[in-house]
Nucleic acid binder design. Structure first.
Length: 702
DNA sequence: GTAGGGTTGTCGC
DNA sequence: GTCAGACTTATTCGG
DNA sequence: CCGAATAAGTCTGACGCGACAACCCTAC
C-alpha cells in the first residue's frame, strides 16, 4: 500500500487509507499514483504489480464474493460501467455545453452521494473522472499510455468477432468510428449467456492493465484483455470502450468541461440534497467552486489530489490546498495567434508591453526543488527530466552562481544549439535527441535554455505578480550562463516600426517570430493554462500575403473519420517536376477547409478517383504510409500556406535535385487557403522552386 | 538466439 | 502545431 | 433602460510533419 502526499497535512490520510483497504477491493494499486515527494518526507512505494496482474480479470468474482459476506459492503455497490456509458451517450447527443455540464455534474453528484463513506465516494469519483477524460493518471506520471491505436484495435475486433480484417476495415471506412463498428459487430453476434455487467472499477483496472503490458507478445496480451472486456459488453458499452482505447471519446466534453462539472457537482453535493433552487447564495457558491477548482488544477494538475481536497476541505477551499510547488508541473500559459501588428496595437491599446523572440524549440518548465534536484516538464506537463540530463549541471551552475537560490520554477524554451558556430539550430535537429535513458556523454545535440519567465522563487509563488516584477526576479536572481541558459531576447517598445524591425530581426536570428506580452497590472499576471489575449504570438506566416504560400496538385484522398465521416478528411498533395513531367508527393493536408467545402470537394473529386496511381506520380513505394486511401487523376490545385519546409523521409518533392534521391521535401504546418481554379496542374509550384525555397530558408538557419 | 528492417504509437512542434 | 464550428458570454445598438 | 443583434471568447475535435521507442517478424 502506498502513501501519497495530497497536501501539506498527511497524518490523517494514514487512518483513512486503513479503512479503505477493508471496504474497497484493490482500488489503491490502480488509481493512486507515484507523486514525487516534494519536501522529501514521504515514502514512495511502488504498485504491487504481481497482485495487480493476478487480480485483473477476476475482479467481478471478487466483488460478488465480498458482497455476500459483509453487510457493510452490500451498500458499496460498485458503479456500473453501463451507467457511465449512458452519460457518454447523452453527452454525445447533446451539443449544448451548459446542458452537458448539467448531465455530467449530476452523474458526479450521484457518485458522491451513493458512496457509503467519503473514501468510497472519493475512489469512485476518481475513477469516473479519469474515464471521462480518458486518462489513467496525471499527465506527469510515466508509462500510462495504452500503446495501441487504430491498427491493433481493428485487429482485435476482427479476432473477437471472427470476421475478416478487410471487412472490418470496410465497415470502419463507412462508419468512420471504430466504436460504432464494434457496436454493430457485437449486436450481430449471438450471445450464449448473459455476461456479468462491467463495473467502472473493472474497466479502469483493465485499461491500466493494457497500459502496463510491455515486452514480448505484449500486443497479443493487450488484444486478449480487450477481447475479454468486449465479451462482457452490453448496450452502448462496446462503442465507448473502443473509443476509450482509441483515445477519441467524441462526447463533446473535454477536460476543461470535466473540471467545471466537478465543481458544479461538489457545489451541489455540499449545499445539500435535492435543493435545486437558484438562490443567489447557491450561484455564488457555484461560481466560487468553479474558480477554485480551475485554479487548483492549473497549479496542481492532479485529479486525485483535487478530489481528495475537495472532500476534505470543501470545494470553496481547494485552491488553498492545491498550490504551486516545485516538483509538480504548472499548466503553462499559452499565447494567442495574431494576424497583424495592427491587431496587436488594437488589443493592447495604450498598455505598456514587451516583445520577446519566439524560439523554435521545446517548451521547458524547469523546476529546482529544495533538495537540490531538478525536473523538466514539457508543454503538456510530461516529465522530460530524463531527456535532458545535460541540464542538471546547468542548474547546478546557476545555483553556484547565486547560492541564495533554494527553489525555483522557470518557464523557458529549450533550443538546439551549435557550440562551434554559437548559433541556434532548427527544431528538426532538436527532435533527433533521444528521449529515454539518455546518458550525458552520448549527447550530440547540445541545448540552450532561453528563459522568459519565473513562476516560483525560494518558496514563494510569484505568478500573481505583474510581468515586470517577475522579470525583476529573473534579472536579479537568475544569472545567465552563455550558450546554456540565456534570457529570451527582448524589446520593450510601443513603436510599430521598431516592432516590425524586431520581427524581421527575430526571423533572421532563426526564430519563429515574436511573443508580445503586457508588462504591468493584472493582465500581465501568469495565468496557468490560459490562452490570454495579453500574451500574443506573431509569426510571419500568420500575416496575410507574407510567408510561404504554395500551389500544389491534389493526387490522393483520405477517408474522413468522426465528424468528417462520408467526406474525404484530407488529401495528398504533390509538386510538379517540370523537368520530368512527374508529380512528386510533398505532404498531406487536412485543415483549413469548411465543412461545406469538404462536402463539395468530395463531390468534385469522387469522379476523378482512379484505382491505380498514375505512372507520373512519385511517392515512396516501399512505405505503405505513403499511399492514400484513394488516388485521383490530377485535376485540381490547392493554394497552401506553410510555416517551414523540412527534409522528409517519406515525401519525394525535389528529391531528384538533391544528391541523395532518398530525401525529398515536405511542409511544416500546412493549411488549405483556396482552390486555384485559374491554375492547371502543370502550373503548380515546381519541385525546383520547392528546393529553392528550402535552401533559401536553410541559409538563414545554418 | 539475435540483428535488423518494417510498422505502429506517442509526443514534440 | 492550424483551423472551423458550435456555444456561451460580453458588448453595442436601437427603440 | 431593456431586449435584440452583434462581437468576442471558449472549447472541442477534425486534421498536418517527423523524431524516437517499442514491438513484430523474418533471416541468418
Amino acid at each position: 500500500m502506498k502513501k501519497i502526499q495530497l497536501d501539506e497535512t498527511t497524518e490523517d490520510l494514514e487512518t483513512c487509507k486503513g479503512s479503505k483497504d477493508v471496504e474497497m477491493t484493490t482500488a489503491d494499486e490502480t488509481t493512486t499514483s507515484k507523486h514525487e515527494e516534494v519536501e522529501g518526507d514521504i515514502e514512495n512505494h511502488k504498485a504491487n504489480n504481481e497482485i495487480l496482474e493476478a487480480k485483473s480479470l477476476l475482479q467481478i468474482d471478487h466483488e460478488v464474493h465480498r458482497t455476500e459476506n459483509s453487510s457493510k459492503i452490500i451498500a458499496n455497490k460498485p458503479v456500473q460501467y453501463a451507467a457511465l456509458c449512458d452519460v457518454f451517450e447523452k453527452l454525445e447527443e447533446e451539443t449544448g455545453r451548459l446542458k452537458n455540464l448539467a448531465i455530467a455534474s449530476e452523474f458526479f453528484c450521484d457518485i458522491l452521494k451513493r458512496g457509503v463513506n467519503q473514501d468510497v465516494a472519493e475512489q469512485n469519483l476518481i475513477e469516473v473522472t479519469y474515464l471521462m477524460i480518458n486518462r489513467l493518471g496525471p499527465d506527469y506520471e510515466p508509462d500510462l499510455e495504452l500503446g495501441l491505436g487504430e491498427t491493433l484495435l481493428l485487429k482485435a475486433l476482427a479476432q473477437s468477432t471472427g470476421r475478416e480484417l478487410r471487412h472490418i476495415k470496410d465497415d470502419y471506412h463507412k462508419a468512420g468510428d471504430i466504436g460504432k463498428v464494434a457496436q454493430i459487430s457485437r449486436s450481430r453476434q449471438p450471445i450464449m449467456f448473459k455476461p456479468k455487467p462491467l463495473t467502472i472499477h473493472q474497466v479502469f483496472q483493465n485499461l491500466a492493465e493494457v497500459a502496463k503490458s510491455t515486452g514480448n507478445s505484449s500486443q497479443s496480451r493487450k488484444i486478449g484483455i480487450i477481447n475479454r472486456m468486449l465479451a462482457a459488453c452490453a448496450g452502448q458499452e462496446a462503442k465507448f470502450l473502443m473509443r476509450s482505447l482509441e483515445g477519441k471519446l467524441r462526447i463533446n466534453f473535454g477536460e476543461k468541461s470535466v473540471l467545471v462539472a466537478l465543481a458544479k457537482a461538489f457545489a451541489e453535493f455540499e449545499c445539500g440534497t435535492g435543493n435545486h433552487s437558484e438562490s443567489e447564495a447557491d450561484l455564488n457558491a457555484l461560481v466560487r467552486a468553479q474558480d477554485q477548482i480551475k485554479e487548483a488544477f492549473a497549479q496542481t494538475p492532479n485529479y486525485e489530489m483535487i478530489i481528495h481536497n475537495c472532500l476534505k476541505y470543501g470545494v470553496g477551499h481547494v485552491a488553498e490546498h492545491c498550490t504551486l510547488k516545485p516538483g509538480i508541473p504548472v499548466k503553462p500559459m499559452l499565447a494567442k495567434p495574431t494576424k497583424s501588428i495592427t491587431e496587436i496595437m488594437d488589443t493592447l491599446q495604450d498598455r505598456k508591453f514587451t516583445c520577446e523572440y519566439k524560439y523554435d524549440g521545446e517548451r521547458a518548465q524547469v523546476h529546482l526543488l529544495p533538495d537540490g534536484s531538478m525536473r523538466v516538464y514539457s508543454r503538456n506537463s510530461e516529465n522530460m527530466t530524463e531527456r535532458y540530463p545535460d541540464l542538471i549541471p546547468v542548474i547546478d551552475e546557476l545555483r553556484a552562481k547565486n547560492p541564495e537560490i533554494r527553489s525555483l520554477i522557470l518557464d523557458s524554451e529549450c533550443v538546439a544549439w551549435n557550440l562551434e558556430s554559437h548559433e541556434i539550430l532548427p527544431f528538426q535537429i532538436l527532435a533527433t535527441r533521444k528521449r529515454k535513458e539518455v546518458q550525458e556523454k552520448d549527447i550530440k545535440v547540445r541545448v540552450c535554455l532561453f528563459v522568459f519567465d519565473v513562476l516560483y522563487f525560494n518558496g514563494e509563488s510569484i505568478i500573481q505578480k505583474p510581468l515586470n516584477e517577475r522579470r525583476e526576479y529573473l534579472d536579479k536572481h537568475v544569472i545567465e550562463i552563455p550558450e546554456k541558459l540565456q534570457f529570451a531576447t527582448r524589446l520593450d517598445s510601443t513603436s510599430v516600426d521598431e516592432m516590425s524591425a524586431f520581427l524581421d530581426q527575430s526571423v533572421h536570428d532563426s526564430c519563429e517570430g515574436l511573443m508580445i506580452k503586457a508588462l504591468f497590472g493584472k493582465e500581465s499576471h501568469y495565468e496557468p493554462s490560459k490562452r490570454s489575449k495579453y500574451w500574443l504570438k506573431l509569426k510571419k506566416d500568420y500575416l496575410e500575403g507574407v510567408g510561404d504560400s504554395l500551389d500544389l496538385v491534389v493526387i490522393g484522398g483520405y477517408i474522413g473519420k468522426g465528424k468528417r465521416t462520408g467526406w474525404y478528411g484530407g488529401f495528398l498533395l504533390a509538386s510538379y517536376n517540370q523537368d520530368t513531367g512527374e508529380y512528386e508527393s510533398i505532404c498531406k493536408i487536412g485543415t483549413g477547409f469548411s465543412e461545406e467545402l469538404l462536402a463539395s470537394l468530395t463531390e468534385q473529386l469522387k469522379p476523378k478517383e482512379t484505382p491505380k496511381p498514375k505512372p507520373s506520380y512519385v511517392y515512396d513505394k516501399d512505405n505503405s504510409n505513403a499511399e492514400p486511401d484513394v488516388w485521383f487523376e490530377p485535376s485540381m490545385v490547392f493554394e497552401v500556406k506553410v510555416a517551414d519546409l523540412t527534409t522528409s523521409p517519406l515525401y519525394k518533392s525535389g528529391a531528384s535535385y538533391f544528391g541523395n534521391r532518398d530525401k525529398g521535401i515536405s511542409l511544416r504546418f500546412p493549411r488549405f487557403i483556396q482552390i486555384r481554379t485559374d491554375k492547371a496542374t502543370e502550373d503548380a509550384t515546381s519541385s525546383e522552386q520547392i528546393v529553392e525555397m528550402y535552401e533559401s530558408q536553410a541559409v538563414v538557419q545554418s
